[in-house]
Amino acid sequence: MADRGFDVQKQRGFTTIALACFVLLYTPIVLLVMYSFNVGTSIAIWEGFSWRWYVSAWENEQVKVAALRSLYLAVVASFVATSAAVLAALATTRRPAYRGQTVVFAIINQPLMVPEIVTAVALLIFFALIKSFTGYTGGAFLFVAHSAFCIPFAYMPIRARLQGMDLTLEQAAADLYGTPLRVFRKVTLPLLWPGILAGAMLAFVISLDDVVITEFVKAAGQDTLPTYMLGQLRRSVTPEVNAISTVLLAISVTMVVIYFILSQRKN
């Protein structure tokens, strides 16, 4: 047999370790989904199938308000973050290397590197300062915070796509009398689309399940779904939390599937 170099699948214990990882990752999720259908109020003892916790979550006014706020927040934040990320990605890839490029890169990716709790505390203090000066305490702070920390998540796939793009395509378009703006609209943007979609969805999901920053930045009565659930857990735990989590999971999976189908069709 030809030597194919280092083959990780041939190493002893590979299968065991791989299986253990999958079990660890997926068992809790499977249990969570399973107990969302439990008839009883326990999240540990199975008593039979029912939709009751979904109905109860659906009829819970607080859940509804929090869910709507979460969605609204995620839509706005992912839109703002993706737009900013497209511009940032263009600015960091469509020009020759320059001094300080790494610094710019690090600044854009700051939320990935600074511990979230630090950002959260910093924002808390910063916003408190603004609040004390302006007296404004509305929901805008949440939108600003979410838009900001979603940028690097949207930025990564867009930048990757831009870097992989054949530069001569844009040159060909310019050669064929395309002004820079029209080249962007007619060539760059359509080719960038899968990257933008991926970035937007990543930003959406990140915003949707953020707890730490939201918890620090939100004012009273500005609960999002995750912070509401956290609050619930502190009091009494019912499978209603499982039901909400399952719905969130379903949304995430659906988005990934949609993205996959769309990006397949592009190629």
Binding site: D166, A173, D175, G178, P190, L191
Partner: peptide, 20 residues
């Protein structure tokens, strides 16, 4: 003149056809 204002067209070495 920028490339888009030159009455000159190029056939690129790798063709550079628009894939979309």
């Amino acid at each position: 003149l920028p490339p888009y204002k030159r009455p000159v067209n190029t056939v690129f070495q790798n063709y550079a056809l628009f894939p979309h």
